[in-house]
Amino acid sequence: MSEKVLIVDDEQEFLDALAERMRARGMDVTTATSPIEALALVARRSFDAIVLDFQMPELDGLETLKRMKDANDDVQVIVLTGHATVERGVEVMKHGAMDFVEKSADINSLTEKIQEASAKKLVIAEEKTREKIQAILEEKGW
């Protein structure tokens, strides 16, 4: 099963290069060059992981992250930045990012994080299904 990944970055060259490298690793990659475009995609489709640039026009990564999590709390977001600080990292993690990494991150490390995000999303989905089944069983008195 290939991971469904959305990569969001306003730098087209970086976006294309990263998408190509992820596709070479067998991932199903969708790209967006703006936070607004990304939010529209997230509203229509399900992704195993979202790789989100922190610094973009229109909305910064933190605001985009908040909106994505508001729309779907299960979404797994890895925030990328060219200017990492501990404060930024803490802030995005508080708002539900799965991870916060430098743009210069090793491609193998990023691939592992995407695979972790996919696995985490699957566990969340299984738990929600289990809870729904339990609620139905209790409601029906079985």
Rank of each mutant, 00 (worst) to 15 (best):
S46K: 12
L59Q: 07
P57C: 11
M56Q: 07
R45C: 08
A49F: 01
L52T: 05
I50V: 15
T31M: 12
L59P: 02
T31L: 08
L39Y: 03
A43D: 13
V42G: 00
G61Q: 08
Q55L: 15
R45W: 05
P57R: 12
R44E: 11
E63C: 07
R44Q: 15
A49D: 06
Q55W: 13
M56D: 02
D48C: 01
V51H: 02
D48G: 03
T33W: 03
E58Y: 08
D53V: 10
S46M: 12
D60T: 10
S46N: 12
E37Y: 03
R45E: 15
L39F: 03
F47H: 01
E37T: 12
P35M: 04
L62T: 12
E58D: 14
R44M: 09
A40T: 07
Q55P: 00
L59E: 10
E58L: 12
T33S: 14
L62I: 13
D48R: 00
V51Y: 02
D53M: 10
Q55D: 11
A38P: 00
L62Y: 10
E37I: 10
D48Q: 03
A49I: 06
T31Y: 10
R44F: 00
F47R: 00
T31R: 09
I36G: 02
T31W: 04
R44H: 09
A40L: 09
D53F: 00
R45H: 13
I50M: 08
I50P: 06
L59A: 11
E58I: 13
I50Q: 02
M56F: 02
F54M: 15
L41T: 07
E63T: 14
V42C: 09
A38S: 07
V51I: 12
A43Y: 02
D53K: 05
A43S: 13
A32R: 00
A40C: 07
I36Y: 00
L41Y: 07
M56I: 10
S46Y: 06
V51M: 06
V51L: 08
E37P: 01
D53C: 04
A38V: 02
L59R: 11
I36Q: 05
